[in-house]
């Protein structure tokens, strides 16, 4: 006992150091996580994650803007010519190639998140060089399928998760 000091049993000492450090780090991490996670959407914010929209009053060629998760959703009832144009332009050179058919559940209805994929502005309907939307902030042009055609935006307008509840109601989210 008397001739044993701290340096003479390195493996035992190391074990104690490492165990202490691991316990300390685990403790720090378990306190840090709540402090970080509280920044994420709260239950009340997440609860608003689905809405229903009545589309019965939209005429052909008309559109409706509804708010979902604080972002606008464009619901557009497209005319026959617009659908034809969107499908015809499947074959042109697109910055983010997607077929019109893959972007809709019902050809007549285009449902997109109305947020420019560049830096989050709201594009203006029925404007721009391609008959769809134009973002005033940094000049991105979208076509009638919500696909990016010209400008700094990297991708097409996002399609939110949605379904037709019946003829008149769309559920988004």
């Amino acid at each position: 006992m008397t001739d044993t000091n701290d340096n003479q049993d390195p493996s035992r000492r190391d074990f104690l150091y490492i165990t202490t450090a691991v316990f300390g780090a685990t403790g720090a991490a378990s306190v840090a996580w709540p402090l970080i996670d509280q920044l994420n959407p709260s239950a009340s914010v997440s609860a608003l994650s689905s809405i229903e929209a009545d589309i019965s009053s939209i005429p052909e060629g008309g559109s409706l803007k509804v708010a979902w998760r604080g972002k606008p959703i464009f619901i557009r009832r497209r005319t026959k010519e617009e659908i034809e144009m969107a499908e015809k332009e499947d074959s042109v050179d697109l910055p983010h190639p997607e077929k019109d058919l893959d972007r809709v559940k019902n050809k007549e209805w285009l449902v997109v998140v109305g947020v420019c994929t560049h830096l989050g502005c709201i594009p203006i309907a029925d404007s721009g060089d391609f008959g769809g939307w134009f973002c005033p902030c940094h000049g991105s042009h979208y076509d009638i399928s919500g696909r990016i055609r010209k400008g700094p935006a990297p991708t097409n307008l996002e399609i939110p998760p949605y379904e037709f509840v019946n003829e008149n109601i769309i559920k988004i989210g």
Partner: peptide, 12 residues
Amino acid sequence: TLLLGGYSVDNP
């Protein structure tokens, strides 16, 4: 999302 506390700039 973590930064905003939601899916867009809002009260949080």
